[in-house]
Simulated scan of single mutants.
Amino acid sequence: MGMIRVIPCLDVKDQRVVKGVSFRGLREAGDPAEMGETYCLEGADELVYLDISASWESRRTRLDWVLNVARVMTIPFTVGGGISSEDEAVELVRLGADKVSINSAAVRDPNLIGRCALRLGSQAVVVAVDAKRGKDGRFRVFAKGGREDTGMDMAEWISRLEPLGAGEVLLTSIDKDGTRDGYDLEMIRSAREATGLPIIASGGAGRPEHFAAAAEAGADGLLAASVFHYRIIGIRELKGILKGLGVPVRV
């Protein structure tokens, strides 16, 4: 097990951070730049910002808050949500993002991953995979903010990402999102078997032991939102507990 990263996730809608359950029931949590600066000071290893707004006007507004975040950031941060072309990805990195996360557009056009990697380097290209367990017990990939069942098998899709040019996988369990009852460990193990890429696990963190279990299952990054935003668990507190449990983290 290599060094494990602790990563707060900030969903942004209309220039404000929000959080819900299973991608629904959103409530406001704060300002993107202010919250990002706080997480830097608290010892987060990285941040992930996901723009969940849908309109073109919000896309343009995104450039404003990304620039504001970049001005205060002292750790790497990723921006995702609605990126549909390599030009958009390049623009976000130009504004200060270290990495971009692509999801639905990569499902529609897998070659977008390679085009982004060609211009930015694979290390800057994260492919987000939102998945749910089907009635047959298999994990399927969903797009458009968890609303569209693509019918794609999660493990098969993840196995294709490294050859396509991705540098990292952001894996979210839609079923577990916001529930605080633990990551989907079976999903993480399935993804781990499918790829050698770093995996950031998302969806379900509620207690320190959940983070430790996800690392044991094969996650390289431990992403959470509400437990950090609403001060249920502090970053320093969590890292201290993880270190005590034998999980290698930067303290």
Rank of each mutant, 00 (worst) to 15 (best):
E34C: 01
V100T: 07
R133I: 05
L63M: 13
R138Y: 12
V6C: 05
R94S: 15
I232C: 01
G178Q: 08
M35P: 07
C40F: 08
V141S: 02
R71I: 03
R16A: 07
G36R: 11
V251T: 12
W56D: 15
I7G: 02
E216M: 12
A97N: 04
E28P: 03
S58I: 01
Q15V: 03
G25Q: 07
P248I: 12
W157G: 00
L26R: 14
L118F: 12
G96V: 03
V93I: 13
V129S: 02
F77M: 10
L92M: 06
G240I: 05
R59Q: 14
P248H: 14
V90L: 13
I200T: 11
I232M: 11
D64C: 02
L185T: 00
L95H: 13
D45L: 03
D220E: 09
D153K: 07
P76D: 03
E57A: 11
I232V: 10
I113G: 00
T74W: 14
L164M: 02
I174E: 08
M1H: 05
R115F: 05
L197V: 05
A215Y: 15
Q123H: 15
I200L: 14
D181T: 10
S101I: 05
A54C: 07
C9L: 15
P76M: 08
I158D: 00
V12I: 01
M73L: 13
G30T: 02
D136P: 03
Y230N: 09
T195I: 05
E216Q: 15
R138K: 15
V66F: 05
V79L: 09
I52C: 04
R59D: 06
K176C: 02
A191H: 10
V48A: 06
L95M: 15
V79I: 11
K19L: 05
I174H: 11
R250V: 06
T150L: 09
I158W: 01
I52N: 04
N111W: 15
V93Q: 08
L222A: 07
I232F: 07
G206E: 05
